[in-house]
Design a binder for these strands. Structure first.
Lengths: 355, 355
DNA sequence: TTGAAAGCGCTAACAT
DNA sequence: ATGTTAGCGCTTTCAA
């Protein structure tokens, strides 16, 4: 690789002059310098620049699972903004592990100007090393206890779960199985609490065995469903706290031959690209995905530039209820009031259930 | 941030000694140095090291679309290996655009020790700048014309498509709609050619209007399906060349009220996490995903280390046919022989051209 | 406007 | 075993 010294020597100027030209300042020998740069295919060393300036031109993006469509969308959002800002993105996957997260964040120190982090657990603060190093951090989708001083982009998980609860309640369900995420992660806890609070407000209590705690992964949704199906008094509906577990639930129901929504209703937190095409189409709580990444990257940019308000900014986005075919009124409820169940169900498209 | 000079001064040794300690060599004042490092929370500057050594400790991963589940899985594979190697991964999304790809690759020069690239188009070689800079490149999932000297990890797309063709032929289908990807991308071209060749071998010709070219995205599958459904002589089956387009096809069929597989069979290239749960479960050509990323990263590591054979290595992985509910025998075929169509679904690798 | 020289933080000869 | 010194490629005072 050609260096600035090569260019300077061949163009017959000093390195300072070349450097100035690169910085956009006016110099006399523009043509000679430009010609030489082109001839040598010179590109200023990013490393040398970083060392001199203390700026890396990179950011870190740390997520629990890239192959989760939600985070894949977030990555896309972050990436699109960072491209415009000419920042490179280091992507790291923590696999929901606090230990991995810790080592990953440590490895980012000195290599990035800022970090967007979706922490694995809200009680395990791994940001201390980054903070000591003065690296700005934006939290994404998940809180971190004791870190309210950090910018964040979150979703109203409690509200979303309450929407799910109200939906199922309005359909007459009272025995509802809950498949929660880890209670020490923000979405896990808030979705659980939001759902339970809404039930409590409606005077509905769940037996302890109707509450299953999973790990946000496919298989835990599957296993939890099997346990719920094994209860002496079966549930009439299931609320699943994230997309991956919802598909696990659906798979278990398929395997066990449970008809949805005839025998059991299902509502999942998180929309899926394919939700509409599933058998049956899935009723979900939806929320912004790409947008979360976009917003987080914008917040981070402001921090990196030292712009914006000194105090932490917290963006909370709204969720929505998308009623599809996997939820319907209980038999009892339909007997009492047909018009009511019709009203609360947006007429779903025809299904060709070929089970 | 503390520097090596700070540590040296406080520990009462030279920077060289500290540096040696960091490199794992034996020194006398181990305790003093270690204590000082801990006290100052010293971490060697990655930037300074890079400048000195010429090694960045980073690699670039350039894909057309992170939110495509296939590439999300690839990313996961690459990431897991690079973590073990203590390499950081720059992730870039080209959105299937040659221009974006070009600028992205340019921006990686000097920042990475190697690049894994899934090129947007096989005729548009944007690797020249990287190659001049001596950056090792591994091609992933897609070829690049004139770049056979680069290592690659590919899938037997032709073979996979032939499997799809043979499957549909064995079910009696002769009027088959093909929804191809861009013919100037490797998977687009090879899947198209593999499929058509298999049909030709079986003496089956398709009318030109039965061949639709999409862009590998959801909507193009949707639109192409509408066009196919509008043909005067309808097709009895559709082959879709990737996952995203397949879901577009399915959505279009749902919207148009076409029953699958009763009225029309569908086979898609690429498995989907949810394929089994779709309505109907999708018959697909599957292939390794995470593994492709793992293998690509291993190839790249060897190049970076200067290990392995001098000549380019080309890994070609096999596909598999997974028969689910979206494909079935034509009425005519079922009339003739019910048992035979079952048998031919069992032997996917075999070309059973007779009905 | 331009250039000489110092220095960002680290490592590697080379000398001790 | 340890220290001195030079230098990776760039930017930036400070003089001219």
């Amino acid at each position: 690789m050609a260096t600035i010294a090569d260019v300077a020597r061949i163009a017959g100027v000093s390195t300072t002059t070349v450097s100035r030209h690169l910085a956009g300042q006016k110099i006399r020998e523009v043509e000679a310098v430009e010609a030489t740069i082109a001839a040598l295919d010179f590109r200023a060393s990013a490393t040398a620049r970083s060392l001199k300036s203390g700026v890396t031109g990179s950011v870190g993006l740390v997520v629990p699972d890239v192959s989760n469509p939600f985070f894949a969308a977030v990555v896309k959002g972050v990436e699109s903004v960072s491209r415009q800002l000419e920042l490179n993105v280091f992507l790291s996957n923590t696999d929901e592990s606090v230990e991995l997260e810790r080592s990953v964040l440590g490895g980012l120190i000195g290599r990035v100007d800022g970090v967007i982090l979706a922490p694995a657990r809200e009680n395990s603060d791994n940001t201390e090393q980054l903070r000591r190093a003065g690296v700005p951090i934006v939290l994404l989708d998940r809180r971190l206890n004791g870190c309210d001083d950090l910018d964040s982009v979150l979703v109203d998980s409690r509200g979303g779960s309450a929407q799910a609860a109200d939906h199922l309640l309005s359909l007459g369900h009272r025995r509802i199985g809950v498949i929660s995420g880890p209670l020490d992660s923000t979405p896990g806890r808030e979705r659980y609490e939001g759902f339970m609070d809404a039930l409590t407000s409606a005077g509905v209590d769940l037996d302890p065995e109707m509450i299953q705690v999973g790990d946000f992964k496919h298989d835990s949704g599957y296993q939890a469903t099997l346990r719920l199906l094994g209860l002496p008094l079966p549930v009439t509906a299931i609320f699943s706290a994230n997309n991956l577990m919802s598909t696990g639930v659906l798979r278990a129901l398929h395997h066990m031959g449970v008809r949805v929504p005839e025998e059991l209703s299902l509502v999942g937190f998180d929309d899926l690209e394919l939700a509409e095409l599933l058998s049956p189409p899935l009723t979900v709580i939806s929320r912004p995905t790409v947008e979360q990444g976009v917003l987080a990257m914008r917040l981070l940019r402001n921090r990196i530039r030292g712009e914006g308000p000194a105090k932490a900014q917290h963006i909370v986005l709204d969720t929505g209820l998308t009623v599809r075919g996997s939820s319907r009124a209980t038999q009892a409820c339909r007997d009492v009031s047909t018009s009511h169940s019709k009203a609360s169900m947006r007429a779903p498209r025809e299904r060709t259930d070929e089970q």
